[in-house]
Design a binder for these strands. Structure first.
Lengths: 243, 243
DNA sequence: CGTGGCCTTGAACCTAGTCAAGTCTAGTGG
DNA sequence: CCACTAGACTTGACTAGGTTCAAGGCCACG
């Protein structure tokens, strides 16, 4: 199955040697600039599954770039209702929903053993003063995050359970692909419960939808292992016509 | 009714004389800095109700600050489903979900006759290089927008129709208050249809919920006119217990 | 093995959507 | 000034998709 060449993000201590730098930093950075960036990055924090990178309410002093593993961010309402706002894969920046010095508005937990790089807001801000490329990169990341949330709002308010699940599977598929992993065969790092809280469904519904997809011959499901049986490009159309 | 002193945003050509500057720009700016900011702002564009400030797909070269009136931003899915992503009131920045040069991901329309100030991305970026206050201000605005979207995701996936409507009314109430208008008596600038597309409900449901609120004596509804009959602070608790 | 958490499956229920009238309002033109 | 119309809004009856409740299966881990 996993037929492609996975990127190997670990054990490389510096940005200029890290295979994920193309994902987390702007490509336009010169070598000299990248060295400057590298100097404000703290490496090495490792999280075990279930451990928190930060918690809702903690003062936000840093953002993080995920090197390996997987994370989820969740916002909890006053009444204990939980909304998973994002799943994070290697190469993605985490913590952009916080402002420097304010409280993190979400809790971010490790779904697997994970390693992160830490970047202090203050040092990043200083550097961005004379590095326009860097400055614009982060604005771009933030605007993308706004866009993604808006797409999520559309999903939550208008799509059926099947369309939601299909959207998630295709999103993960595409993100694995850009990371050098298989787009058609992967393991979900999150539980059914996490998926439900992300898609705005009940756990039971998530389970049922996956079963229906499998019965329709679209995917094979074995616990957390997902295998596409048709091309991801055809997936959504098939879901639309069969459900 | 409208018992407070409305801010008067119009007819003041420069930022240092604009009563909304406290809302749209950081308070820490010095007079000298504010003059610099003023120089990159283009004033004067006026929109009539229904007119577009920009449309989904247009190249994004500017962001806008609303001076008067009201706007809505909507994202349309491939299948024509419409999600209202935000209502904008005077003093708010519009267009942050776009990255410089990319396409706007939403269409922003005037709900009323509206006036906006335009700020080019490029010039704002230049200025922010040597104005840390300004730079951080915009990062803060964007992170707030991410936070708001996440709250909206929670609303759309977990809250009942009554809770959604209550959240919107209280949100508008608070925003009118900070703008010097009454928090307990105001006119909705958007249609029931807009509200429905914002809250992820059917128009009929919006109508019914408002009727129920009125029957319960929480508010008086007369077309677009809303009057709170109880303190906004007690509103949500009352909604929770009665529905 | 046994236990607890995660997942699946079935059946009943319920909230909000859809469909269908009917009302109200604002704007138009005679 | 009033009649007419189109669109916005409201109300009622019915429907459906997804939740909730309940039970049982499947691992993984001690």
């Amino acid at each position: 199955m996993a037929s492609s060449i996975p990127l190997r993000p670990v054990a490389e201590p510096h940005c200029n040697e890290c295979s994920l730098v193309a994902l987390c930093m702007p490509r336009e950075l010169t070598d000299a600039e990248l060295i400057k960036v590298d100097q404000i990055v703290t490496r090495g924090r490792t999280l075990h599954a279930g451990e928190a990178l930060f918690r809702q309410g903690d003062p936000a002093l840093s953002i993080y770039s995920l090197r390996s593993g997987a994370l989820k961010s969740t916002a909890v309402s006053d009444k204990g209702q939980e909304q998973v706002t994002a799943f994070h894969l290697p190469g993605e920046m985490v913590g952009l929903s916080a402002s420097e010095g304010d409280a993190y508005p979400v809790t971010t937990l490790a779904l697997d053993t994970s390693a992160v790089c830490e970047v202090s807001f203050a040092r990043l801000d200083n550097l961005s003063a004379y590095m326009p490329t860097l400055r614009r990169h982060f604005l771009r990341l933030m605007s993308r995050e706004i866009r993604d949330s808006q797409q999520m709002m559309l999903l939550l308010s208008k799509k059926t359970a099947e369309q939601r699940m299909a959207t998630l599977l295709l999103d993960l598929s595409a993100r694995y692909r850009t990371r050098g992993y298989s787009a058609t065969s992967f393991r979900l790092s999150m539980s059914r419960h996490d998926i439900a809280d992300y898609l705005g469904l009940a756990v039971e519904t998530v389970s049922r939808v996956l079963t229906r997809f499998a019965q329709a011959g679209l995917i094979a499901v074995d616990g957390k292992q997902i295998d596409f049986l048709i091309a991801p490009g055809d997936f959504f159309a098939r879901v639309e016509e069969e459900f």
